[in-house]
Computed example of a mutant assay.
Amino acid sequence: MADSPTLLDNGFDAVVDEVVRPMADGVDRDGRFPREGVRALGEVGLLGLLSSAEVGGAGAGLREAAQVIERLAGTCGSTAMVLLMHYSAVTVLDRHASDDVRREIAAGHHLSTLAFSERGSRSHFWAPVGTARPGGADGVLLDAQKSWVTSAGEADSYVWSSKPLAADGPMSLWLVPGGSTGLEVRGAYDGFGLRGNASSPMSAQGVEISADALLGADGQGLATALEIVLPCFLVLSGAFSLGVTEALLDRAATHLRETRLEHLDQTLAQQPLARNQFAALRLRADALRATLEATFAAMESGRPEATLRVLQIKALAAETAAEVADGVMRLCGGAAFRRETGVERRFRDALAARVMAPTTEALHDFCGRAQLGLPLFEEA
């Protein structure tokens, strides 16, 4: 995916090279939230990339956001995932939040994220068990045990799901300010990959918010999630996995070109088996890029297959990234186990998309349902 000249002109390239890249290994090693990188991205307008121009945002679309996520993912997966979840939240906030919040996001001063997955329903984000109930003075009280929240304890706000307050329907969405009384991060995140993205459990115990914190209509949160949030999340997840895949292949190519078999006076790149293995991995990445482009084309033209393509892209991307990561690890051999090659960190980051909701298995089921004319969800 070609870089956007506008983004480069606004300093994105410099932020990646001068702030994100030098910190990436430390963010991973120490499990440290990439505050400096997020702040720098905000300063050059990237937090407001999807915000409407009317509130000072860039008014960009998913193509531009995908360029940003792909580039960041190959450099620092944790920073990329923080921004990916922020963009997914902004799709709701720019439509339903107050103008003050929207302007703060557009100005790069407000980081948001999604708080959907729950302990009681796991990766079935479409079935929250957390509740919303009336509070004092026209307020609302939220109670929930969220299982995975990216930027937990770091975000300025959370797009929070619950059962409806009073209406029918499976879900309502709320804007919950960070630091709200009763909102708690339940332990530090010590993950296998994406180690700096602060994906910790969170709990809400009688968290009081105002009734106007409702994002959209009561009971209509699932429709909002499926129509607005999920397409953004799935497509940007595809771009994330593509970015990690490309970074892995870049490192494999460098290893093959620079590593020599002295007794043969040849590089590994001159070995037919190594070339064959690399070509097969390259083919997987190119097929993923072509599918991502086809997804954008279907969405932008409103073609009937757009929904299916959106459901397919994260599943394909997640499996491609994981399989290419495994292939690069084998191709580079023992050298890939050393941190300095950059393969090991990206190998771990590549596996995250497989198990991130909706999981590959759930998406396969959704795709099958879509192709066979069945509803995505069974009626309760």
Rank of each mutant, 00 (worst) to 15 (best):
E262D: 14
T150P: 05
L372R: 13
V68E: 08
R260V: 15
D9M: 06
S210E: 13
N10I: 03
A167C: 06
V310R: 11
G48D: 03
D13H: 12
A317K: 02
F377W: 05
E258L: 14
G61N: 09
F377E: 03
S203A: 15
A115N: 05
L93I: 00
C232W: 04
A60R: 12
K163H: 02
V355H: 05
E118D: 07
T131S: 15
R303E: 14
V101Y: 00
V176I: 08
L248E: 07
D265M: 09
P177S: 12
S301Y: 03
V159Y: 00
L268D: 01
W160V: 04
L264Q: 14
R133Y: 02
D99R: 14
A362R: 15
L311N: 07
R71F: 07
K314E: 06
F12S: 03
M81F: 02
E118M: 07
A350T: 08
P375Q: 10
R186M: 12
V235T: 13
G373R: 11
R282N: 14
G57Y: 02
F366H: 08
E227D: 15
V92W: 00
F337C: 11
G327H: 08
A253N: 11
H110Y: 15
R95P: 03
D365K: 11
A115G: 13
L256T: 06
P358A: 12
L249Q: 06
E54C: 01
N276M: 14
R133P: 01
G31K: 11
L62Y: 02
E64F: 03
D100Y: 06
P201K: 03
E227H: 09
D156R: 01
A213H: 13
